[in-house]
Simulated scan of single mutants.
Amino acid sequence: MEEEQQSRTLQRRKIRRRRRRKRIAVFFITVATLLFLVVGGGLTWAWSQISGLTNDTFKPLPREISDLRPDQESVNIQDDHVSVLFLGVDSREGAVSGRSDAMILATFNRDDSSVKMLSIPRDSYVEIPDRGSERISHAHAYGEHDLAVETVENFLDVPVDYYATINFQAFIEIVDTFGGITVDSDISFSEQDSEHNPDAIFIDEGEQELNGEEALAYVRHRNTDGDLARGNRQTEVIASLINEATSISNISNYDDAFKSLENNMNHNIEGFQELIAFHSYASSLDSMERFQLEGTFERIDGSEVIVIDDTSLANARLKLRNHLELDDPEQP
């Protein structure tokens, strides 16, 4: 009887450990795949897979801590509220460079394990350090993640503690790995494919299943309804892919998802222990607050850009700074 009780206790402990591993890995790929990619985990081999991936794709920022944290010497994921900038770039397999077609800043509050996610339109007209005023998507093309992080910080007045950049090849492969995603499109439209063939992909209006190529077209399209509507589609895809990736039926596909990331992403999350510290947020991913900057289209120097509304910018700045529990710099 005693041996049977001990066996049950050990079994319960194993189940709890497996659940914890799944939460950690699910959150990591939300970070690792930037805006849309949660590949999860739940098997013992996931520990070594994630650890190896973090080492192979690690590229630090040229600083220890953001200048917007003047009262801190360091940021610790285990103890601090932190932010992560997710960047999606249009580059070929094996390269993580070029303009950022997707840019999302997420903040994580340690006290209540909540997540907020701000979508920044790629055509936002902002000041890029040493380059002047241009579309914010150009920052990554000029200086990769270093300049993209600096530009976002200057624009939002919110510290960027971590970043994760992924190219669209990995996005396509991971969507296909999990058997596609479900979306509900407000409009029908055609869009180029990943090889830039015009009108190669057609999206119907209404609910439908999309494969990797179709999902990429869905999150990139803006010709019909603009950059702001595209931001809504990107956050919709995040939620849908989280749902697919955490499905028990997709456990056998995690290994392929990790392989898709190996040569197609960069990040500055140093070491496996930092990733473990993120596990408490995994249960909040399906209820995270998603919002985006609003603005108006204007033609400046021959290019159509989005001039972000001052009120929208101020509200987003305040919401993210409050979530990080930072003092308002405009207050005494």
Rank of each mutant, 00 (worst) to 15 (best):
E73D: 10
N243W: 05
V115M: 07
E93Y: 03
I15Y: 12
S91L: 05
Y142L: 10
N268A: 08
F291W: 01
Y163M: 02
N243E: 10
T235W: 05
I174R: 11
E93Q: 05
I238V: 07
I29L: 15
E304Y: 03
I238C: 04
A25R: 06
G226D: 11
L37E: 11
A46Y: 00
A32D: 05
H145Q: 06
N55T: 11
G94N: 09
V75Q: 07
D111F: 06
P329D: 03
E144W: 10
D301T: 02
D184V: 12
S252R: 15
F108C: 01
F258E: 07
S252D: 03
S194L: 02
V82Q: 02
M1E: 09
I104W: 14
I242D: 06
R233T: 01
A170K: 05
R16I: 12
F258W: 09
V115G: 09
D327N: 08
N55S: 14
P129L: 08
L35C: 10
S283C: 10
N55Y: 09
T57Y: 06
F108N: 06
S119M: 04
D310W: 01
F258N: 06
Q292E: 08
A148H: 15
D193C: 01
I187H: 12
G302H: 12
E4N: 13
G94H: 10
V175F: 13
S240E: 08
E4Q: 14
E244S: 08
G132H: 03
S185F: 02
R21S: 04
V237Y: 14
I300L: 11
G98Q: 09
L10G: 13
G52R: 05
E195F: 01
E173Y: 11
R63V: 04
D186F: 02
A245V: 05
F278E: 07
R20L: 13
E209V: 00
V126Y: 01
H81Y: 05
H279T: 11
I203D: 00
S48Q: 12
N264P: 07
Q5C: 03
D90W: 05
G94A: 04
I128V: 14
S260C: 09
N154G: 12
Y218R: 03
S252E: 12
I308S: 10
N250Y: 04
F291I: 10
D286K: 15
Q331C: 03
G295W: 00
A239Y: 02
Q234I: 04
I50P: 00
N266H: 14
E191A: 01
R122G: 00
R110F: 07
D146H: 11
L147K: 12
N250T: 10
S114P: 02
V160S: 06
N109G: 04
F291L: 11
H196A: 12
F291M: 13
E93W: 04
V26A: 14
F171E: 09
T224S: 04
E236T: 10
S312V: 08
N197F: 01
L275I: 13
M288D: 13
S137A: 15
V126P: 00
G98H: 15
Q78N: 08
A239K: 03
G98K: 02
D310C: 03
N263Y: 07
I276N: 04
I248L: 13
Q169E: 07
E274P: 00
I77K: 14
G132P: 04
E73A: 15
Q208G: 08
G88Q: 05
V219K: 02
I24F: 12
S100Q: 09
G212V: 02
P70H: 08
N253T: 03
L37V: 08
A229E: 03
A25S: 05
I136V: 14
T151D: 13
S194K: 07
S240D: 09
